[in-house]
Design a protein around this nucleic acid. Structure first.
Lengths: 126, 126
DNA sequence: AAATTATTGCAAATGATTTGCAATATTGCA
DNA sequence: TGCAATATTGCAAATCATTTGCAATAATTT
């Protein structure tokens, strides 16, 4: 008799805890560092794809040539403001439904998702 | 007597022409394909960094794990709407100054730049 | 506790981008 | 024009992020 299922394993527990604890967009490597290499980097990547597929994690791009990952559950849909000097990341909330509607109307596209990230200098670094 | 200067060379000419001709965000590889490997991929990359430094080219991220490059001169500041099915890219213009101002006020950051890209289905692919 | 099957770690592959370096091309000046 | 000075190229190899294959291991069902 065949059974299929997703198992709750140590690597998965750990990656989830790392994302929860770090609670900002982090790279796969940063997760690994936080976990002190207790699990293999490959498992971090594999767990992340799982979490992304289950819509528990968002992928965020800051244009550094790598992906960053963030738990979804916490806050609502939001964007980020990154300090180009110290690297601090702040969440940005905004209502963008009218903006999306306007783009949809003008383009006749159906919009499924969007990326929006801001870069600048935080109060301390100005 | 030492002289310093930037030279107008064949590879640079070609990369510029490729960007002009393709006139949408393209990857380094796509530039190379267009140029039929007349120049080395390394030179494409080196020319692109030069053009970026001189603010003639923008880097655009669609989250595919690679960068895309687009000539600045053509249109004004704009964003992109990418069809997730056929890959077609449409430019999106919008006035975002009030949005930026609002984010700056709420965050106390000074915003230097931002990324905004939309993904969805174009009229033909819906 | 055994059998079944999902998951892991490790090594190696892949893809994008960068770097070192000797060979070559461009440019300013005699 | 011709040459020297130096910027730039191509090629090979390095690097970084991410993915894949596979045999060993762990989780789960019975």
């Amino acid at each position: 008799m065949t059974k299929i299922g997703i198992r709750y394993t140590k690597p998965r527990k750990l990656v989830f805890e790392a994302l929860e604890h770090l609670s900002k967009p982090v790279s796969a490597n940063e997760i690994n560092d936080y976990l002190k290499n207790k699990i293999d980097l490959t498992s971090v990547y594999r767990t992340l794809s799982l979490l992304i597929k289950s819509e528990m994690v968002n992928v965020i791009l800051f244009g550094e040539g790598k992906k960053r990952y963030e738990l979804k559950n916490k806050n609502e849909h939001h964007h980020h403001l990154v300090c180009e000097k110290c690297g601090d990341v702040k969440d940005v909330e905004m209502k963008e439904s009218s903006l999306l509607k306007s783009v949809e109307e003008r383009s006749k596209f159906v919009i499924k998702k969007h990326n929006l990230e801001f870069f600048g200098l935080c109060p301390d670094c100005q």
